[in-house]
């Protein structure tokens, strides 16, 4: 019975991946661009998942890291003309450093206190951007004229050809999934999940809880910052309203609705949260109402998220043969 179920799942995943890869050939520019948005938010969701899903920290300010990355890209690109994709590591680094500085003092806060502090953080960042902090963020106007990414000299213009951009962002999404899958199954990932389920016991087992939490924050922030590069180069301009508290809420909902702590769940969450409002476009002013209802209903019927993570098992026979490592 079990191998069969696993087989079905594998086939389903393969089919979805295949469909995803060929989708832009059939669905036209608009829906390709919807998929681009889904992919961007999938990466954002996955990066938040490290903090919220594995680390269990109530973090509702992820848009702040995303904003730092996007603005780093925009500022450096428009000022010195550095190609945007080269700026990805810089954007990640900036967001990571920012996370290190702000998360350090707040990391020990519990649950809802951390939640409001991260909300405060994202609001402060947005207000700082609007007020043109250091005179470099362009205020409410934002920054325009960001160049589109180029891969080996090939311009990937998401406006003219969303399909080109689709493969770029899909590549980044694929790398993200692989790396985060490895991370999830590493010593680090297991420690994080452990301290999420029982912090006191984790501390008792010699896990440096504060260090791990901080590391989770920084990794999540680095990734969100790099995604900011992709977003800035996609839009060609950025402004503070793209990084509001509501954006953080959207990322939060993606993780929780899809299945906190499960990569496949987060991907599905991104597809639903970003895709559904577009599917409801025809309903015009009613679309958000229906979206809200759908959100409630899905949550009520799948309280653990639509695809919750499976509890990790260590079969005894495999342990003896050293097939499972700690």
């Amino acid at each position: 019975m079990k191998p069969a179920a696993g087989q079905i799942r594998k086939t389903a995943y393969a089919a979805i991946i295949l469909l995803w890869m060929v989708a832009p050939l059939f669905i036209g520019k608009y829906w390709t661009d919807v998929l681009n948005n889904v992919a961007i938010y999938a990466v954002l969701g996955l990066s938040l998942n490290i903090i919220l899903g594995y680390g269990g920290m109530f973090h509702m300010g992820h848009a702040a890291f995303y904003a730092v990355g996007a603005y780093t890209t925009a500022i450096v690109n428009t000022a010195w003309g550095v190609p945007v994709l080269w700026l990805m590591p810089a954007a990640g680094l900036a967001a990571g450093l920012f996370a290190l500085v702000v998360a350090r003092p707040i990391i020990h806060l519990r649950g809802d206190y951390l939640l409001i502090v991260t909300i405060g953080m994202v609001e402060i960042v947005r207000i700082a951007l609007i007020n043109n902090v250091f005179g470099i963020t362009g205020g409410a106007n934002g920054i325009f004229g960001i160049s589109s990414p180029s891969v080996f000299g090939f311009q990937v213009n998401s406006i003219v050809a969303p399909a080109h951009y689709f493969y770029l962002v899909t590549a980044f999404l694929a790398i993200t999934i692989v790396l985060f899958y490895l991370l999830e199954n590493s010593r680090f990932g297991r420690a994080l999940k452990f301290l999420c389920s029982d912090e006191v016991a984790a501390q008792g087992s010699g896990i440096n809880t504060a260090g791990y939490k901080l590391a989770a924050f920084v990794i999540g922030a680095v990734w969100a910052g790099m995604t900011g590069t992709l977003y800035a180069s996609k839009m060609g301009f950025i402004s503070p309203e793209s990084f509001s508290f509501w954006e953080s809420v959207v990322m939060f909902m993606i993780v929780i609705l899809g299945g906190s702590g499960n990569i496949a769940g987060v991907l599905l969450g991104a597809a639903l949260i970003i895709g559904l409002p577009e599917i409801f476009q025809g309903l015009q002013q009613y679309r958000l109402l229906i979206f809200g209802l759908a959100l409630m209903i899905m949550m009520i019927f799948r309280p653990q998220g639509i695809l919750p993570p499976k509890p990790r098992s260590y079969p005894i026979d495999k342990l003896e043969k050293n097939e499972v490592s700690f």
Binding site: I256, L288, L289, F291, L293, L295, M299, I300, Q304
Partner: peptide, 30 residues
């Protein structure tokens, strides 16, 4: 929105609350 989630993880109820918030504000708008 909340009673069916009484025994669920806390954050599920938060997402349900966010959904309810969207529903209520859009109902008022309509």
């Amino acid at each position: 929105a909340y009673k069916p989630l009484r025994t669920s993880p806390r954050l599920s109820a938060v997402v349900s609350a966010l959904g309810a918030s969207i529903v209520l504000s859009n109902t008022v708008m309509l």
